[in-house]
Write a protein that binds this DNA or RNA. Structure first.
Lengths: 226, 226
DNA sequence: TCAGTATATATTGTTAACAAAATAAACAAA
DNA sequence: TTTGTTTATTTTGTTAACAATATATACTGA
Protein backbone atom coordinates (compact mmCIF):
# COMPACT_ATOMS: atom_id res chain seq x y z
CA UNK A 1 0.00 0.00 0.00
CA UNK A 2 2.44 2.64 -1.14
CA UNK A 3 4.64 1.90 1.84
CA UNK A 4 7.33 4.29 0.71
CA UNK A 5 5.32 7.51 0.94
CA UNK A 6 3.61 6.73 4.21
CA UNK A 7 6.60 5.16 5.93
CA UNK A 8 8.75 8.11 4.89
CA UNK A 9 6.49 10.44 6.87
CA UNK A 10 6.47 8.03 9.80
CA UNK A 11 10.25 7.68 9.80
CA UNK A 12 10.87 11.40 9.57
CA UNK A 13 8.53 12.18 12.42
CA UNK A 14 10.03 9.41 14.55
CA UNK A 15 13.54 10.65 13.83
CA UNK A 16 12.55 14.19 14.68
CA UNK A 17 11.03 13.03 17.94
CA UNK A 18 13.97 10.91 18.99
CA UNK A 19 16.32 13.79 18.16
CA UNK A 20 14.12 16.15 20.15
CA UNK A 21 13.63 18.42 17.17
CA UNK A 22 9.92 17.70 17.52
CA UNK A 23 8.74 18.42 21.03
CA UNK A 24 5.75 17.18 22.96
CA UNK A 25 2.55 18.98 22.11
CA UNK A 26 3.56 20.12 18.63
CA UNK A 27 0.67 20.05 16.22
CA UNK A 28 1.09 17.92 13.15
CA UNK A 29 -1.26 19.52 10.64
CA UNK A 30 -2.37 17.42 7.69
CA UNK A 31 -1.87 20.16 5.15
CA UNK A 32 1.52 21.07 6.56
CA UNK A 33 2.71 17.47 6.36
CA UNK A 34 1.30 16.79 2.91
CA UNK A 35 2.98 19.97 1.67
CA UNK A 36 6.29 19.05 3.31
CA UNK A 37 6.38 15.55 1.89
CA UNK A 38 4.54 16.48 -1.30
CA UNK A 39 1.85 13.84 -1.06
CA UNK A 40 -1.89 13.90 -0.56
CA UNK A 41 -3.69 13.97 2.75
CA UNK A 42 -4.74 10.34 2.61
CA UNK A 43 -1.13 9.30 3.04
CA UNK A 44 -0.66 11.74 5.88
CA UNK A 45 -3.72 10.41 7.62
CA UNK A 46 -2.56 6.84 7.49
CA UNK A 47 0.87 7.86 8.68
CA UNK A 48 -0.70 9.65 11.62
CA UNK A 49 -2.79 6.58 12.41
CA UNK A 50 0.41 4.54 12.51
CA UNK A 51 2.17 7.08 14.72
CA UNK A 52 -0.83 7.08 17.00
CA UNK A 53 -0.60 3.30 17.29
CA UNK A 54 3.04 3.75 18.28
CA UNK A 55 1.76 6.08 21.00
CA UNK A 56 4.00 8.97 20.08
CA UNK A 57 1.13 10.95 18.56
CA UNK A 58 -2.30 11.71 19.96
CA UNK A 59 -5.25 11.97 17.60
CA UNK A 60 -7.94 14.33 18.83
CA UNK A 61 -11.22 14.25 16.89
CA UNK A 62 -11.84 17.38 14.84
CA UNK A 63 -8.71 18.93 16.29
CA UNK A 64 -5.89 17.08 14.64
CA UNK A 65 -2.73 15.22 15.55
CA UNK A 66 -0.29 16.28 18.25
CA UNK A 67 3.01 14.92 19.44
CA UNK A 68 2.03 13.17 22.65
CA UNK A 69 2.86 14.65 26.03
CA UNK A 70 3.65 11.87 28.51
CA UNK A 71 2.42 12.45 32.03
CA UNK A 72 4.59 11.72 35.05
CA UNK A 73 2.77 8.43 35.68
CA UNK A 74 3.16 7.44 32.06
CA UNK A 75 6.84 8.33 32.24
CA UNK A 76 7.37 6.04 35.23
CA UNK A 77 5.53 3.23 33.43
CA UNK A 78 7.75 3.74 30.42
CA UNK A 79 10.93 3.56 32.46
CA UNK A 80 9.77 0.45 34.27
CA UNK A 81 8.91 -1.14 30.93
CA UNK A 82 12.37 -0.24 29.66
CA UNK A 83 13.99 -1.92 32.64
CA UNK A 84 11.91 -5.04 32.05
CA UNK A 85 12.72 -5.18 28.36
CA UNK A 86 16.34 -4.12 28.47
CA UNK A 87 17.06 -6.64 31.23
CA UNK A 88 16.16 -9.44 28.83
CA UNK A 89 17.90 -7.73 25.94
CA UNK A 90 21.20 -7.42 27.80
CA UNK A 91 20.98 -11.07 28.83
CA UNK A 92 20.56 -12.01 25.18
CA UNK A 93 23.46 -9.76 24.26
CA UNK A 94 25.83 -11.34 26.76
CA UNK A 95 24.91 -14.78 25.46
CA UNK A 96 24.74 -14.05 21.76
CA UNK A 97 27.21 -11.29 20.99
CA UNK A 98 30.01 -12.41 18.68
CA UNK A 99 33.29 -10.66 17.91
CA UNK A 100 31.74 -8.49 15.22
CA UNK A 101 29.06 -7.34 17.66
CA UNK A 102 31.64 -6.46 20.28
CA UNK A 103 33.60 -4.55 17.68
CA UNK A 104 30.48 -2.64 16.74
CA UNK A 105 29.89 -1.78 20.38
CA UNK A 106 33.46 -0.55 20.81
CA UNK A 107 33.15 1.47 17.64
CA UNK A 108 29.98 3.02 18.94
CA UNK A 109 31.69 4.04 22.19
CA UNK A 110 34.41 5.91 20.33
CA UNK A 111 31.70 7.51 18.19
CA UNK A 112 29.91 8.67 21.32
CA UNK A 113 33.17 10.12 22.62
CA UNK A 114 33.69 12.02 19.40
CA UNK A 115 30.15 13.35 19.44
CA UNK A 116 30.53 14.49 23.02
CA UNK A 117 33.35 16.82 21.96
CA UNK A 118 31.19 18.59 19.41
CA UNK A 119 28.67 20.01 21.87
CA UNK A 120 25.87 19.20 19.43
CA UNK A 121 23.06 18.24 21.77
CA UNK A 122 20.61 16.65 19.30
CA UNK A 123 23.45 14.64 17.82
CA UNK A 124 24.54 13.48 21.26
CA UNK A 125 21.00 12.44 22.13
CA UNK A 126 20.74 10.49 18.91
CA UNK A 127 24.03 8.71 19.59
CA UNK A 128 22.99 7.90 23.11
CA UNK A 129 19.74 6.37 21.96
CA UNK A 130 21.59 4.50 19.23
CA UNK A 131 23.62 2.66 21.86
CA UNK A 132 20.53 1.17 23.43
CA UNK A 133 19.12 0.29 20.02
CA UNK A 134 22.41 -1.34 19.04
CA UNK A 135 22.16 -3.54 22.11
CA UNK A 136 18.60 -4.41 21.09
CA UNK A 137 19.74 -5.43 17.63
CA UNK A 138 22.57 -7.56 18.96
CA UNK A 139 20.12 -9.20 21.35
CA UNK A 140 18.33 -10.56 18.29
CA UNK A 141 14.77 -10.40 19.52
CA UNK A 142 12.78 -8.41 16.98
CA UNK A 143 9.80 -7.98 19.30
CA UNK A 144 11.84 -6.51 22.13
CA UNK A 145 13.76 -4.41 19.62
CA UNK A 146 10.58 -2.83 18.28
CA UNK A 147 9.18 -2.14 21.73
CA UNK A 148 12.44 -0.59 22.86
CA UNK A 149 12.43 1.57 19.77
CA UNK A 150 9.05 2.95 20.80
CA UNK A 151 10.08 3.37 24.41
CA UNK A 152 13.32 5.19 23.65
CA UNK A 153 11.41 7.63 21.46
CA UNK A 154 8.94 8.26 24.22
CA UNK A 155 11.88 8.67 26.57
CA UNK A 156 13.15 11.43 24.29
CA UNK A 157 9.81 13.18 24.68
CA UNK A 158 9.98 12.78 28.45
CA UNK A 159 13.49 14.17 28.69
CA UNK A 160 12.52 17.01 26.38
CA UNK A 161 9.61 17.80 28.67
CA UNK A 162 11.01 17.28 32.14
CA UNK A 163 14.72 16.67 31.74
CA UNK A 164 17.31 18.88 33.35
CA UNK A 165 20.13 20.07 31.16
CA UNK A 166 22.79 17.83 32.60
CA UNK A 167 20.52 14.81 32.76
CA UNK A 168 19.55 14.61 29.14
CA UNK A 169 22.46 12.45 28.12
CA UNK A 170 23.58 8.99 29.13
CA UNK A 171 26.80 9.12 31.05
CA UNK A 172 29.56 7.94 28.77
CA UNK A 173 31.38 5.71 31.20
CA UNK A 174 28.19 3.85 32.04
CA UNK A 175 27.89 2.72 28.46
CA UNK A 176 31.55 1.76 28.51
CA UNK A 177 31.18 -0.30 31.66
CA UNK A 178 28.22 -2.10 30.14
CA UNK A 179 30.26 -3.04 27.08
CA UNK A 180 33.07 -4.24 29.32
CA UNK A 181 30.73 -6.53 31.22
CA UNK A 182 29.40 -7.91 27.92
CA UNK A 183 32.92 -8.63 26.73
CA UNK A 184 33.59 -10.38 30.03
CA UNK A 185 30.39 -12.42 29.58
CA UNK A 186 29.36 -11.34 33.06
CA UNK A 187 25.60 -11.62 32.78
CA UNK A 188 24.69 -10.61 36.31
CA UNK A 189 26.93 -7.57 36.23
CA UNK A 190 25.70 -6.49 32.82
CA UNK A 191 22.09 -6.71 33.94
CA UNK A 192 22.91 -4.76 37.06
CA UNK A 193 24.70 -2.02 35.17
CA UNK A 194 21.86 -1.60 32.67
CA UNK A 195 19.29 -1.47 35.44
CA UNK A 196 21.22 1.15 37.36
CA UNK A 197 21.92 3.08 34.20
CA UNK A 198 18.20 3.34 33.46
CA UNK A 199 17.38 4.31 37.04
CA UNK A 200 20.08 6.93 36.77
CA UNK A 201 18.45 8.51 33.77
CA UNK A 202 15.04 8.38 35.41
CA UNK A 203 16.28 9.93 38.65
CA UNK A 204 17.77 12.91 36.87
CA UNK A 205 14.37 13.92 35.56
CA UNK A 206 12.54 16.63 37.41
CA UNK A 207 8.83 16.46 36.93
CA UNK A 208 7.11 19.80 37.18
CA UNK A 209 9.43 21.83 34.96
CA UNK A 210 7.56 21.90 31.67
CA UNK A 211 9.15 23.74 28.80
CA UNK A 212 6.47 24.05 26.14
CA UNK A 213 8.23 26.07 23.50
CA UNK A 214 7.87 24.77 19.96
CA UNK A 215 9.13 25.81 16.58
CA UNK A 216 7.71 25.88 13.06
CA UNK A 217 7.07 22.48 11.54
CA UNK A 218 8.82 23.17 8.26
CA UNK A 219 12.06 23.94 10.04
CA UNK A 220 11.90 21.02 12.42
CA UNK A 221 11.15 18.14 10.08
CA UNK A 222 13.22 19.03 7.05
CA UNK A 223 12.09 16.23 4.72
CA UNK A 224 14.81 17.09 2.20
CA UNK A 225 17.49 15.26 4.15
CA UNK A 226 15.70 11.90 3.97
CA UNK B 1 -10.91 11.68 14.04
CA UNK B 2 -14.08 9.65 14.10
CA UNK B 3 -12.50 7.26 16.57
CA UNK B 4 -15.66 5.26 16.98
CA UNK B 5 -15.92 3.91 13.43
CA UNK B 6 -12.26 3.09 13.04
CA UNK B 7 -11.71 1.76 16.53
CA UNK B 8 -14.79 -0.43 16.17
CA UNK B 9 -13.22 -2.20 13.24
CA UNK B 10 -9.92 -2.50 15.10
CA UNK B 11 -11.56 -3.87 18.23
CA UNK B 12 -13.65 -6.40 16.33
CA UNK B 13 -10.69 -7.70 14.40
CA UNK B 14 -8.57 -7.91 17.56
CA UNK B 15 -11.34 -9.75 19.39
CA UNK B 16 -11.76 -12.15 16.50
CA UNK B 17 -8.03 -12.82 16.46
CA UNK B 18 -7.72 -13.36 20.20
CA UNK B 19 -10.73 -15.71 20.07
CA UNK B 20 -9.15 -17.55 17.15
CA UNK B 21 -12.17 -16.92 14.97
CA UNK B 22 -9.83 -15.08 12.63
CA UNK B 23 -6.90 -17.26 11.71
CA UNK B 24 -3.45 -16.41 10.42
CA UNK B 25 -3.37 -15.68 6.72
CA UNK B 26 -6.99 -14.63 6.37
CA UNK B 27 -7.42 -11.84 3.88
CA UNK B 28 -9.07 -8.69 5.18
CA UNK B 29 -10.53 -7.15 2.05
CA UNK B 30 -11.34 -3.45 2.15
CA UNK B 31 -14.71 -3.82 0.49
CA UNK B 32 -15.65 -6.75 2.70
CA UNK B 33 -14.82 -4.80 5.86
CA UNK B 34 -16.50 -1.58 4.77
CA UNK B 35 -19.62 -3.58 3.91
CA UNK B 36 -19.56 -5.41 7.23
CA UNK B 37 -19.15 -2.28 9.31
CA UNK B 38 -21.13 -0.09 6.92
CA UNK B 39 -18.51 2.60 6.53
CA UNK B 40 -16.35 3.84 3.70
CA UNK B 41 -13.00 2.47 2.68
CA UNK B 42 -11.03 5.36 4.14
CA UNK B 43 -12.00 4.21 7.62
CA UNK B 44 -11.10 0.64 6.80
CA UNK B 45 -7.74 1.71 5.51
CA UNK B 46 -6.86 3.61 8.62
CA UNK B 47 -8.03 0.73 10.78
CA UNK B 48 -5.80 -1.61 8.81
CA UNK B 49 -2.87 0.76 9.23
CA UNK B 50 -3.44 0.65 12.98
CA UNK B 51 -3.70 -3.14 13.00
CA UNK B 52 -0.52 -3.30 10.99
CA UNK B 53 1.24 -1.15 13.59
CA UNK B 54 0.04 -3.63 16.21
CA UNK B 55 1.75 -6.31 14.09
CA UNK B 56 -1.29 -8.54 13.88
CA UNK B 57 -1.94 -7.64 10.24
CA UNK B 58 0.45 -7.57 7.30
CA UNK B 59 -0.04 -4.95 4.59
CA UNK B 60 1.17 -6.14 1.21
CA UNK B 61 1.29 -3.45 -1.51
CA UNK B 62 -1.34 -3.90 -4.22
CA UNK B 63 -2.41 -7.15 -2.62
CA UNK B 64 -4.19 -6.11 0.53
CA UNK B 65 -4.23 -6.84 4.24
CA UNK B 66 -3.78 -10.28 5.76
CA UNK B 67 -3.87 -11.56 9.29
CA UNK B 68 -0.20 -12.04 10.05
CA UNK B 69 1.36 -15.48 10.15
CA UNK B 70 4.08 -15.59 12.82
CA UNK B 71 7.11 -17.65 11.95
CA UNK B 72 8.71 -20.01 14.44
CA UNK B 73 11.47 -17.50 15.19
CA UNK B 74 8.94 -14.74 15.67
CA UNK B 75 6.94 -16.99 17.97
CA UNK B 76 9.96 -17.63 20.17
CA UNK B 77 10.68 -13.90 20.32
CA UNK B 78 7.08 -13.29 21.32
CA UNK B 79 7.23 -15.82 24.13
CA UNK B 80 10.50 -14.44 25.42
CA UNK B 81 9.03 -10.95 25.35
CA UNK B 82 6.01 -12.22 27.28
CA UNK B 83 8.26 -13.70 29.94
CA UNK B 84 10.14 -10.42 30.23
CA UNK B 85 6.99 -8.35 30.50
CA UNK B 86 4.89 -10.68 32.63
CA UNK B 87 7.75 -11.08 35.10
CA UNK B 88 7.56 -7.40 35.87
CA UNK B 89 3.77 -7.41 35.78
CA UNK B 90 3.51 -10.20 38.34
CA UNK B 91 5.97 -8.40 40.60
CA UNK B 92 3.77 -5.31 40.43
CA UNK B 93 0.72 -7.43 41.13
CA UNK B 94 2.21 -9.02 44.24
CA UNK B 95 3.12 -5.58 45.54
CA UNK B 96 0.05 -3.63 44.51
CA UNK B 97 -2.91 -6.01 44.58
CA UNK B 98 -5.51 -5.02 47.16
CA UNK B 99 -8.41 -7.08 48.48
CA UNK B 100 -10.67 -6.12 45.61
CA UNK B 101 -8.03 -7.24 43.12
CA UNK B 102 -7.62 -10.58 44.86
CA UNK B 103 -11.39 -11.03 44.88
CA UNK B 104 -11.44 -10.32 41.14
CA UNK B 105 -8.74 -12.91 40.58
CA UNK B 106 -10.64 -15.52 42.61
CA UNK B 107 -13.80 -14.69 40.71
CA UNK B 108 -11.97 -15.16 37.46
CA UNK B 109 -10.73 -18.59 38.54
CA UNK B 110 -14.27 -19.78 39.20
CA UNK B 111 -15.30 -18.32 35.87
CA UNK B 112 -12.54 -20.27 34.15
CA UNK B 113 -13.72 -23.43 35.90
CA UNK B 114 -17.26 -22.84 34.72
CA UNK B 115 -16.15 -22.20 31.16
CA UNK B 116 -14.08 -25.36 31.17
CA UNK B 117 -17.23 -27.42 31.74
CA UNK B 118 -18.92 -26.02 28.66
CA UNK B 119 -16.45 -27.39 26.13
CA UNK B 120 -16.63 -24.13 24.19
CA UNK B 121 -13.09 -23.77 22.92
CA UNK B 122 -13.14 -20.12 21.74
CA UNK B 123 -14.76 -19.13 25.01
CA UNK B 124 -12.12 -21.01 26.98
CA UNK B 125 -9.33 -19.36 25.02
CA UNK B 126 -10.84 -15.97 25.66
CA UNK B 127 -11.11 -16.67 29.40
CA UNK B 128 -7.55 -17.91 29.53
CA UNK B 129 -6.23 -14.79 27.85
CA UNK B 130 -8.40 -12.67 30.12
CA UNK B 131 -6.56 -14.02 33.15
CA UNK B 132 -3.24 -12.71 31.91
CA UNK B 133 -4.81 -9.39 30.97
CA UNK B 134 -6.42 -9.15 34.39
CA UNK B 135 -2.98 -9.54 35.95
CA UNK B 136 -1.70 -6.81 33.65
CA UNK B 137 -4.47 -4.46 34.74
CA UNK B 138 -3.87 -5.14 38.42
CA UNK B 139 -0.17 -4.54 37.86
CA UNK B 140 -1.08 -0.94 36.96
CA UNK B 141 1.49 -0.29 34.30
CA UNK B 142 -0.37 0.86 31.20
CA UNK B 143 2.63 0.42 28.92
CA UNK B 144 3.20 -3.19 29.90
CA UNK B 145 -0.54 -3.80 29.74
CA UNK B 146 -0.73 -2.60 26.16
CA UNK B 147 2.26 -4.61 25.07
CA UNK B 148 0.93 -7.73 26.73
CA UNK B 149 -2.37 -7.19 24.98
CA UNK B 150 -0.57 -7.27 21.65
CA UNK B 151 1.53 -10.25 22.61
CA UNK B 152 -1.38 -12.34 23.84
CA UNK B 153 -3.19 -11.73 20.59
CA UNK B 154 -0.18 -12.80 18.63
CA UNK B 155 0.05 -15.82 20.92
CA UNK B 156 -3.48 -16.70 19.87
CA UNK B 157 -2.36 -16.65 16.26
CA UNK B 158 0.62 -18.84 17.09
CA UNK B 159 -1.47 -21.39 18.95
CA UNK B 160 -4.01 -21.37 16.13
CA UNK B 161 -1.21 -22.07 13.68
CA UNK B 162 1.01 -24.52 15.51
CA UNK B 163 -0.81 -25.48 18.68
CA UNK B 164 -1.74 -29.02 19.47
CA UNK B 165 -5.29 -29.62 20.65
CA UNK B 166 -4.47 -30.22 24.27
CA UNK B 167 -1.95 -27.41 24.43
CA UNK B 168 -4.17 -24.58 23.38
CA UNK B 169 -5.41 -23.77 26.86
CA UNK B 170 -3.66 -22.66 29.99
CA UNK B 171 -3.80 -25.36 32.63
CA UNK B 172 -6.35 -24.31 35.21
CA UNK B 173 -4.39 -25.21 38.31
CA UNK B 174 -1.43 -23.16 37.13
CA UNK B 175 -3.54 -20.04 37.18
CA UNK B 176 -4.83 -21.03 40.60
CA UNK B 177 -1.34 -21.53 42.00
CA UNK B 178 -0.33 -18.13 40.68
CA UNK B 179 -3.25 -16.48 42.46
CA UNK B 180 -2.34 -18.32 45.65
CA UNK B 181 1.21 -17.02 45.52
CA UNK B 182 -0.08 -13.50 44.97
CA UNK B 183 -2.36 -13.79 47.99
CA UNK B 184 0.61 -15.03 50.00
CA UNK B 185 2.66 -12.06 48.76
CA UNK B 186 5.36 -14.49 47.71
CA UNK B 187 7.06 -12.52 44.99
CA UNK B 188 9.75 -15.02 44.06
CA UNK B 189 7.31 -17.89 43.88
CA UNK B 190 4.81 -15.90 41.82
CA UNK B 191 7.48 -14.92 39.33
CA UNK B 192 8.66 -18.49 39.11
CA UNK B 193 5.17 -19.83 38.53
CA UNK B 194 4.41 -17.33 35.78
CA UNK B 195 7.71 -18.04 34.06
CA UNK B 196 7.13 -21.77 34.13
CA UNK B 197 3.54 -21.34 33.06
CA UNK B 198 4.63 -19.43 29.96
CA UNK B 199 7.35 -21.95 29.17
CA UNK B 200 4.73 -24.65 29.54
CA UNK B 201 2.51 -23.07 26.94
CA UNK B 202 5.45 -22.56 24.61
CA UNK B 203 6.66 -26.11 24.97
CA UNK B 204 3.33 -27.58 24.03
CA UNK B 205 3.48 -25.93 20.63
CA UNK B 206 4.57 -28.08 17.72
CA UNK B 207 6.04 -26.07 14.92
CA UNK B 208 5.48 -27.64 11.55
CA UNK B 209 1.80 -28.49 11.84
CA UNK B 210 0.11 -25.70 9.93
CA UNK B 211 -3.66 -25.75 9.67
CA UNK B 212 -4.55 -23.12 7.10
CA UNK B 213 -8.32 -23.54 6.88
CA UNK B 214 -10.29 -20.31 7.01
CA UNK B 215 -13.95 -19.37 6.86
CA UNK B 216 -15.92 -16.50 5.33
CA UNK B 217 -15.25 -13.10 6.83
CA UNK B 218 -18.88 -12.19 7.37
CA UNK B 219 -19.41 -15.20 9.56
CA UNK B 220 -16.21 -14.74 11.55
CA UNK B 221 -16.39 -11.10 12.51
CA UNK B 222 -20.11 -10.64 13.19
CA UNK B 223 -20.13 -6.88 13.71
CA UNK B 224 -23.72 -6.97 14.96
CA UNK B 225 -22.72 -8.08 18.43
CA UNK B 226 -20.53 -5.04 19.06
C1' DT C 1 -6.46 -32.83 -21.00
C1' DC C 2 -3.17 -29.51 -20.29
C1' DA C 3 -0.49 -25.24 -20.92
C1' DG C 4 -0.31 -20.78 -22.20
C1' DT C 5 -2.51 -16.54 -23.50
C1' DA C 6 -5.93 -13.04 -23.79
C1' DT C 7 -9.92 -11.04 -21.79
C1' DA C 8 -12.94 -9.73 -18.03
C1' DT C 9 -13.67 -8.89 -13.29
C1' DA C 10 -12.56 -7.44 -8.84
C1' DT C 11 -9.48 -5.08 -5.64
C1' DT C 12 -6.29 -1.74 -4.25
C1' DG C 13 -4.23 2.97 -4.94
C1' DT C 14 -4.88 7.90 -5.78
C1' DT C 15 -7.03 12.16 -6.24
C1' DA C 16 -10.29 15.77 -5.88
C1' DA C 17 -14.38 17.86 -4.34
C1' DC C 18 -17.48 18.92 -0.78
C1' DA C 19 -19.40 19.01 4.20
C1' DA C 20 -18.63 19.86 9.01
C1' DA C 21 -16.17 21.58 12.64
C1' DA C 22 -12.86 24.46 14.90
C1' DT C 23 -9.95 28.39 14.99
C1' DA C 24 -8.93 33.17 13.97
C1' DA C 25 -10.36 37.75 13.01
C1' DA C 26 -13.35 41.62 13.05
C1' DC C 27 -16.54 44.10 15.33
C1' DA C 28 -19.81 45.99 18.79
C1' DA C 29 -21.09 46.96 23.48
C1' DA C 30 -19.98 47.72 28.21
C1' DT D 1 -9.33 48.05 27.54
C1' DT D 2 -12.06 44.13 27.99
C1' DT D 3 -15.72 40.96 27.02
C1' DG D 4 -18.90 38.76 24.10
C1' DT D 5 -20.79 38.01 19.53
C1' DT D 6 -20.71 37.49 14.68
C1' DT D 7 -18.29 36.60 10.52
C1' DA D 8 -14.47 34.78 7.79
C1' DT D 9 -10.92 31.51 7.31
C1' DT D 10 -8.63 27.43 8.04
C1' DT D 11 -8.54 22.59 9.11
C1' DT D 12 -10.43 18.16 9.64
C1' DG D 13 -13.92 14.66 8.12
C1' DT D 14 -16.37 12.26 4.42
C1' DT D 15 -17.49 10.69 0.03
C1' DA D 16 -17.19 9.48 -4.70
C1' DA D 17 -14.93 8.89 -8.97
C1' DC D 18 -11.14 7.28 -11.55
C1' DA D 19 -6.49 4.87 -12.40
C1' DA D 20 -3.46 1.03 -11.68
C1' DT D 21 -2.73 -3.50 -10.33
C1' DA D 22 -3.86 -8.17 -9.39
C1' DT D 23 -6.91 -12.08 -9.70
C1' DA D 24 -10.17 -14.96 -11.98
C1' DT D 25 -12.31 -16.54 -16.21
C1' DA D 26 -12.59 -17.89 -20.94
C1' DC D 27 -10.36 -19.19 -24.85
C1' DT D 28 -6.97 -21.15 -28.19
C1' DG D 29 -3.63 -24.47 -29.63
C1' DA D 30 -1.04 -28.41 -28.93
Amino acid sequence: MSETQESMIVEHVLDAISDQRLRAGTKLGEQALSDLFSCNRAHVRRALATLSAYQVVDLIPNRGAFVSTPSEDEARDIFQARRAIEATIIRNVVRRADDADLAALRAHLTHEDAVRQENDRPKAIRASRAFHMLLARIGRNSVLEKYLSELTMRTSLIIGLYGTNKASLCADDEHRHIVDSIAARDEARAQDLVDHHLRHIENEIEFGSQSPRIGPLSFILQPSEG
